[in-house]
Design a protein around this nucleic acid. Structure first.
Lengths: 238, 238
DNA sequence: ACCTGAACACCGTTCAAGT
DNA sequence: ACCTGAACACCGTTCAAGT
């Protein structure tokens, strides 16, 4: 309430059409905070790709000097760790319906969706990473489900890492997707992305129209179900 | 033979103890060629990591000016593509013993070993990649085995990509391996890498001693077999 | 405590000049 | 054809100086 009052008082001192907000400084900037920096960084990466994330670009985006960022973030590595954890906050970790198998699947799909919404950020996974709270919550849920299913500690750790690898790797490989599809040039000739003539790679040619990597609809679910079926089989054979 | 003659003639003109080699120039440098550049680059990455690969560092390694490299390689992207294909030449693609299942497994393990020998290079997979001849040969073999097993074109494409994702992803996640193991400090207290207190992540704590990511022995084979079992089950249920 | 601009030690790559 | 050094347009980050 008292905040409200100070708001209208501030408004009265300046022409109202400017839209003065007391939470912004005289240049109309919102205060620089860690969350605001991290959110802006994630938006920048989503829109322009990971290479576009430079401290200078981020600073100008926030209408602030480059070095101002270093008052809230130690270095670029810490920033990317924070961005990763912000993204993982979108994963739905709340207990779902069904047995461990069904719950594991919906959790994996939720993780997949979070990564899908921020594909450009995924490649930071190949750097050394410090796990934040959201990352740990997901991990805790997966391991809990595996232990509940009857996996030993050792097997649960291996199964977790394999599943984790598949889910994240799916998006990393998206860029590296093999693209040996035939392309017809303007002059009528047909070119291939392959470095080998078609006769030497008959199987590739046979399935080439389906080789779309991560862009193939249903591709993620296919591999996920193959893997989860394998896991379920392991539990049964005990 | 005539080369031999010119060799000894060159030797005669200079003191023999210098160890003159006609294939080297007056500064004792071997001629700069594409393969030599690529081999040196791969060695550099193996020994010092991917960030250590700069055009300048590579040039000084080869005792040549930085710009000399650009006469043999278009840019750094092309260089990394060539390095990747050099590595993939180490994958054994020759037909092995056994049915499609056994052959697929040995092929996957061979791929895994090639990546293990050059872990530092693996993260370039998350960049846009042009596939070289060796890469395509491996791909051709895998797809051939899947088609032979009875998979449809669409399923073979999906299965290939999922397997590919797992194998490569395993090495990329190695660096991002969760390390929530307890560490005892010098003062006797116990610290955790986790951003959450142990009580909130009981499952992680329960399996923490097995969470070693890609460094865990047998970890790769565990996930591989889970996945391959799932694939085999798919074939049977048809 | 928070912000700023100049400066440092790097990058990949272009360009003009050499042989 | 192949190599070279200087230069350009970038990086992340340190530092001294401001409020």
């Amino acid at each position: 309430m008292s905040e409200r009052t100070s708001t209208s008082r501030a408004r009265a001192e300046r022409p109202t059409w400017v839209g003065i907000d007391p939470s912004k400084d005289e240049q109309g900037r919102a205060p620089l905070t860690r969350p605001r920096i991290v959110r802006a960084a994630l938006r920048l990466v989503d829109e322009q790709g990971l290479p576009a994330l430079t401290m200078r670009a981020l600073a100008t985006e926030l209408k602030v000097s480059t070095m101002a960022l270093y008052n809230h973030v130690r270095d670029k590595d810490e920033l990317t760790d924070l961005m990763l954890d912000l993204m993982l906050g979108e994963v739905d970790c709340s207990p779902a319906e069904g047995d461990w198998f069904a719950q594991l699947r919906t959790l994996a799909c939720s993780y997949h969706m979070a990564l899908s919404a921020h594909t450009n950020l995924v490649r930071v996974y190949s750097t050394k990473i410090r796990l934040g709270p959201h990352s740990l919550m997901v991990m805790e849920r997966v391991l809990g489900l595996l232990l509940e299913a009857g996996f030993s500690s050792a097997d649960a750790a291996d199964a977790f890492f394999a599943l984790y690898t598949y889910i994240v790797g799916f998006h990393q490989m998206g860029r590296a997707a093999p693209l040996p599809n035939p392309t017809s040039h303007a002059d009528g000739t047909v070119g291939y992305y392959t470095a080998l003539p078609p006769e030497q790679v008959p199987s590739i040619m046979a399935v080439s129209r389906h080789l779309e990597g991560a862009r193939r609809p249903g591709g993620f679910e296919y591999g996920l179900d193959v893997f989860l079926d394998g896991l379920q089989a392991q539990v049964r054979h005990r």
